[in-house]
Amino acid sequence: MLKRFFDLFTALCGLVLLAPVLLIIALLIRLKLGSPVLFRQVRPGLHGKPFEMVKFRTMRDAVDKHGNPLPDDQRMTRLGHILRATSLDELPELWNVLKGDMSLVGPRPLLMEYLPLYSAEQYRRHEVRPGVTGWAQINGRNALSWEEKFKLDVWYVDNQSLWLDLKILFLTVKKVLVRDGISAEGQATMERFRGNDR
């Protein structure tokens, strides 16, 4: 209950105080990328229950001759790179926190298609609400391997506390300022998870 109250209070204050920043970013995306300004995608939440996550859009809608989206590094724009490097693209997720779909701190919500690929231990990351930031984010973010990231997620599930959340939020700000671990080596973001046997 204390964690949820902290999430509600902080997310509401954040949305109010950051409203001018959100508006400016939305206008820049509209001018540079067109509409929609927000990227919406269904992700697994608490206990794997689907919810619609919202972020600022960072990529062009570029496709190949077969209509398939081009790789992330070919669709990423300069504005999108700046938004991701500063984590400003994540700000709309405060709305997800307000709704109760997410928490400020928890394992990052990944793709629905990953659910059947997890081991029983890895699936434990869904025992808590997904977070805007998390233990894995301050310990390497996208520079980590999937195995390392999942181990950190499960460690957080077993050790969560309000004090740990405050520490993670503080270290997240520090990580954003030094722009550490934004992408995996040779990737614009992170290579797709293909299961534990690959």
Rank of each mutant, 00 (worst) to 15 (best):
Y118D: 12
K149D: 03
G134S: 12
S183D: 09
R179C: 11
Y123F: 14
P107D: 08
A188S: 13
P107E: 06
D158C: 12
F150L: 13
V176R: 03
L104P: 00
P116S: 11
V176F: 10
L98P: 07
D165N: 12
R141C: 07
N139T: 10
Q122Y: 09
P130G: 08
A120H: 14
Q187I: 07
V97R: 01
F193R: 09
G131C: 11
P109I: 04
V176I: 15
E113K: 15
R108K: 11
D180P: 00
L94D: 01
M190W: 00
W135R: 04
G131T: 01
G131I: 06
E90K: 06
E147S: 15
V154I: 15
S87L: 05
Q137W: 03
L144H: 03
T86F: 09
N159Y: 15
G131P: 02
L94N: 06
R84T: 05
P107V: 05
G106I: 04
R125M: 01
E113V: 11
R124V: 07
G131A: 07
V105A: 04
E185G: 09
L152G: 03
Y118L: 12
S119H: 07
E121V: 13
L162W: 01
I182G: 02
D153R: 02
N139V: 11
D153F: 00
P107M: 12
V176C: 08
L171Y: 10
D101L: 10
V132S: 11
K149S: 15
M190F: 14
E148C: 06
V154W: 01
Q122G: 03
N139E: 14
H126I: 05
D101K: 07
R179M: 13
L117K: 15
G181I: 05
A184G: 15
W135Q: 07
T189E: 06
L110R: 04
L115S: 06
S145W: 14
G186L: 13
S145I: 14
G186C: 13
G131F: 07
M102G: 03
A184C: 05
R124I: 09
G186K: 11
W95H: 06
A188L: 04
D180K: 15
W146H: 13
L169P: 00
P107Y: 09
S87W: 02
S183Y: 00
L88Q: 12
G100Y: 00
S145D: 04
F150V: 11
Y156F: 09
F150W: 07
L169T: 02
Y114D: 02
L94R: 03
L117F: 08
N139H: 15
R125L: 13
E90P: 00
E127V: 00
Q122V: 12
G100C: 10
V176G: 05
D158A: 11
L111W: 00
A143M: 13
I182P: 08
G100S: 11
K175N: 10
V173R: 06
L91K: 10
K175W: 01
R192N: 12
A143I: 08
N196W: 15
V128R: 00
L164E: 05
T172G: 08
Y118H: 10
K174Q: 14
S161Y: 05
S183V: 01
V173M: 10
E90C: 07
E121R: 14
Y156I: 00
